[in-house]
Design a binder for these strands. Structure first.
Length: 324
DNA sequence: GTTCCACCTCT
DNA sequence: GAGGTGGAA
């Protein structure tokens, strides 16, 4: 009855996936959208989880000769194709799930990317040039809600730590043996579902280093437990109506609602505004003194259906280049 | 309608 | 003080 040993499929190209630089792949997987991807030995190979899935991604390894040829321009290595490796016994279902998660062959992403107002918005064009292939992930709704309830006044490494603890202590084991994992930060468990969260005490949640967020997660779990179709019904609503429902949950304000709407429900008109974005829009767009709500409104009006992707580009640039 | 502060835990 | 929210002033 013990889980089978895990064997990985051989590394293979991921058809339809964009090419990334190491920096770009890090921004894509660990830049504030998702919190369950970990680099392996270097920053070109990552292992990550979502739902009951586990996957590895890497940049196609460069031959040594290639590295030598790039010696003249080491600061900007060329983008490399993405490769994947999956648990062999689940590859048949995980591969399509991975493609969906990464929005590969998603013409909606391609249309939105093409519709970004790069010609009339020079700063956005600068940001976009830094990560031309950055895309909005398509993450499971319930997990996205949990992740961003953890995110209040926390940095990415701390959010990842909370989610890893939640999975390890409260989640359901995956069908893999523990020894399969090469990175200790990767939990052998899925994240706890909302029914599972409703069944544990606030004290158990606090033991996952959630702090005051434990009360919000417990409260949200109770709301969802009292209305079993809550997530499903919310997922069926358009942006504004889904947002109103999310805002009724304890611990969900406008920023977290917009993150969940964008990363978990694919509502690209969402424009999450945190302190980084407040700073970015004040400095780059002259919005000094504007409130977060006002900046969010500006973003939705200015960028329309491309607001979510534009926000991710502006956000990435501000965090990594913003000192200039 | 806006502003201020407590809320956990760690850097 | 931190990638926020809720309640009070």
């Amino acid at each position: 009855m013990s889980a089978p040993p895990l064997t990985w499929t051989p590394w293979a190209p991921l058809p339809g996936a964009p090419s990334y630089t190491a920096i770009g792949l890090r921004e894509q997987l660990d830049g504030g959208q998702a919190f369950r991807w970990y680099p392996e030995s270097d920053d070109t190979t990552w292992i990550g989880q979502w739902s009951h899935h586990l996957a590895r991604l890497r940049l196609r390894p460069t031959p040594t000769v290639g590295a030598a040829l790039r010696r003249d321009n080491p600061a900007s290595p060329p983008p490399l194709p993405l490769e994947y490796s999956l648990p062999a016994s689940f590859a048949e279902t995980t591969l399509p799930a991975l493609r969906h998660y990464l929005a590969i062959d998603d013409d909606r992403h391609d249309r939105i990317d093409a519709a970004l107002p790069l010609a009339t918005d020079p700063h956005l064009a600068t940001c976009h040039a830094l990560h031309p292939h950055l895309r909005i992930l398509r993450q499971p709704f319930g997990e996205t809600l949990l992740a961003f309830l953890c995110s209040a006044t926390k940095q990415i490494p701390q959010i990842k730590q909370m989610l890893a603890l939640l999975a390890t202590r409260l989640g359901t084991p995956l069908d893999f043996s523990v020894s399969a994992f090469q990175n200790f930060s990767v939990s052998e468990n899925a994240l706890p579902t909302w029914p599972q969260l409703a069944a544990v005490s606030e004290a158990d949640l606090r033991a996952c280093q959630l702090g005051f967020r434990a009360r919000y997660i417990k409260g949200t779990a109770e709301v969802l437990a009292a209305a079993p179709a809550w997530l499903e019904e919310t997922a069926a609503l358009p942006y504004a109506a889904a947002k109103m429902r999310l805002l009724t949950l304890p611990g969900v304000g406008e920023k977290i609602a917009d993150c969940v709407l964008l990363f978990g429900l694919g509502h690209h008109e969402a424009f999450p505004v945190d302190t980084w974005m407040l700073k970015a829009m004040a400095r780059r767009y002259g919005l000094e003194g504007w409130s977060p709500t006002q900046v969010a409104h500006f973003g939705r009006v200015h960028y329309g259906p491309t607001a979510g992707l534009a926000q991710q580009h502006l956000f990435a640039w501000e965090r990594t280049q913003g000192g200039r």
